[in-house]
Amino acid sequence: MTAPTINGSAYPRPLDDLMPAARQVPVRDGELVPSRRRLMADLKIGNDKAAAIRDRLISEAEENAKTQAYRDLSAKDAEARALRTVADDTAPDSTVTPNPPDRGDRQTAEQSTQVRTVEEADDTNPAPQPTPVGHPGAPTPPAAGKPVRPVAAWPVVLLALPAFVAVWSGWVGLGGLTGFGVVHPLPGIWDSFQINTAITLPIGVETYGAYALYVWLSGRVPDRARRFAKWSAIASLLVGAAGQVAYHLLVAPPDGAPWWITTAVSVLPVAVLGMGAALAHLVREDH
């Protein structure tokens, strides 16, 4: 004959029917839920069912702990709001506003109220008062409504113009020494039209270097494009400096200045052009 279960029936009860009795099983000190053996002994059930009931009890205990923590947090938040309300009600009103504040002022006031903490409401130390205007130790207030004049960029462009002319003439001269010269790009169509291909050197090197420098310093492009602009601008300036050095060493008279002085002087226009282009861009930036 089959032994009766905890409810006096010979048929095993489902887990849902066993849960009320399982919640009444005593728990030892330091345990969150009863042990599996304790459930087996008190409820007269098998090992598998005791393990399933214990898992449910653990889930219920965790949910109860979360619910209690949420309730505690809500209670603390309500207490903090009550303290802020008391602090706002007891604070003296030093000014009277004849007209109601607009929407922006109400939003600013709400944000200021939200950022206050309970510690600020309980703090009894008075806040330091600002030094009155006109006091010897008071800072000088800025002039109201006086706009800040931006720095003009045209002097930088004017100063870099002679350097650009020197670089241009150096590249044209180097192009003439290396085979660049006058060509007729439209024969049979416009025979009188001619162009000196030496101008492609300063346009291709120095103009690109100035634009790549602008892209690098602008910060308005993706990181990959900015890195490419950075290194290509540096490479263009270095190539431009090397081209100027090569041209002046080729055309310098034998009894002229030493080569290292010629090199230093030849690099100066390129350096001034690069720094002028960078400075002209930076002074136009808003930030």
Rank of each mutant, 00 (worst) to 15 (best):
T2S: 12
T5E: 11
G8L: 08
Y11W: 04
Y11I: 06
R13D: 10
D16A: 08
A21T: 07
V25M: 06
P26D: 03
V27R: 01
E31I: 02
V33W: 04
P34F: 09
S35A: 08
R36Y: 03
R36F: 04
L43C: 06
N47D: 09
D48Q: 11
D48G: 15
A51S: 04
R54T: 05
R54V: 08
R54S: 00
R54W: 01
D55H: 09
I58W: 06
A61L: 02
A61W: 05
E62A: 10
T67C: 06
A69Q: 09
L73V: 12
L73W: 03
S74M: 12
S74Y: 08
A75P: 03
K76W: 01
K76I: 11
A80N: 09
A80C: 15
R81H: 06
R81N: 13
R84I: 05
T85E: 11
D89K: 11
N99R: 08
P100L: 13
D102G: 15
G104L: 15
D105P: 07
Q107W: 07
Q107A: 13
E110K: 03
T113V: 05
T117S: 11
T117L: 04
E119V: 08
E120I: 09
A121W: 04
D122F: 13
D123P: 13
T124H: 10
N125P: 10
P126L: 11
A127Y: 14
A127S: 08
P132H: 13
V133Y: 14
V133K: 07
G134T: 10
P136R: 00
G137F: 14
G137R: 09
A138W: 09
T140C: 15
P141F: 14
P142S: 14
A143R: 11
A143M: 15
A143T: 14
A144R: 11
A144Q: 15
G145Y: 10
V148P: 07
V148M: 10
R149F: 06
P150V: 06
A153L: 12
W154E: 10
W154Y: 05
W154I: 12
P155M: 05
V156L: 11
V157F: 09
V157D: 14
P162Q: 01
A163N: 15
F164N: 09
A166I: 12
S169D: 11
L174R: 00
G176R: 06
G176Q: 08
L177Y: 05
L177R: 00
T178N: 07
T178R: 04
G179M: 01
W190D: 13
Q194Y: 03
Q194F: 05
T197G: 14
T197D: 02
A198E: 01
A198M: 06
E206H: 02
T207N: 09
Y208A: 10
G209Y: 00
Y214F: 01
V215W: 00
L217F: 04
P222E: 06
P222V: 07
D223Y: 02
R224Q: 01
A225R: 01
K230A: 07
A233S: 03
I234T: 06
I234L: 04
A235S: 02
S236N: 03
V239N: 00
G243D: 03
V245P: 04
Y247R: 00
L250K: 03
V251H: 04
V251I: 04
P253Q: 05
D255Y: 12
W260H: 13
T263N: 12
L268A: 03
P269W: 00
P269I: 05
L273P: 13
A280K: 07
R284P: 11
E285H: 09
